[in-house]
């Protein structure tokens, strides 16, 4: 605000007045639902999750093995050359511990979330997922982890077919 301006507009609504229903409001709930088409690469990725495998794309020009898979390389701007599988193991690139739910309310059990660089993918190629079977205070950067899959009969072709990633012990694969 410039010191030349003496008054500034806006009428604040007190939270207490809102809660007490003293503020006239028009309420509305959108009803739209969506069906996102997964496309050629991600459809196959989801199908392969049912088989307990993680699909990646290969670009021979830049040499990258990309996960999540895609139909085109966004760097070379050409169709990818091939698809391959990467391992369901990797290491923690970064992580966070969430104490809040989607509506910003508090949860009892925190969720550990991480970017996991998968073995077999190009360096730095990671996916977002959860970490389990470990106290959040024990999680470390660079920690080796492995996917814990739902039983095959419960898989539905969703990223949640992997329940979470758990820490690997020294020497474990």
């Amino acid at each position: 605000m410039s010191e030349k301006i003496k008054e500034y507009p806006g009428h604040r609504i007190k939270t207490a007045d809102l809660r007490a229903g003293l503020v006239p409001l028009i309420r509305y709930k959108p009803e739209a639902k969506f069906a996102f088409s997964a496309g050629a690469a991600m459809s196959r990725f989801l199908e392969e999750l049912k088989n307990g495998r993680i699909l990646a794309s290969v670009c021979k020009k830049c040499g990258r093995i990309m996960v999540p898979p895609r139909t085109f390389c966004e760097i070379c701007f050409k169709p990818v050359d091939d698809y391959t599988y990467v391992k369901d193991t990797g290491k923690i690139n970064t992580y966070s511990v969430s104490f809040i739910a989607a509506d910003a309310s508090r949860v009892k059990e925190p969720t550990i979330v991480a970017v996991i660089e998968l073995d077999g993918a190009s360096p730095g190629m990671g996916i977002l997922h959860k970490i389990g079977e470990i106290d959040w205070k024990e999680v470390k950067f660079g920690m080796r982890v492995k996917a814990v899959w739902k039983p095959p009969e419960q898989r539905e072709g969703a990223i949640t077919d992997i329940k979470y990633f758990k820490p690997l012990k020294e020497g474990e694969e």
Binding site: P30, F34, F36, S37, A38, G39, M42, G157
Partner: peptide
């Protein structure tokens, strides 16, 4: 077999 993934506005 191309998949659709459901979603809605919360």
């Amino acid at each position: 077999r191309l998949r659709h993934y459901p979603g809605h506005l919360e």
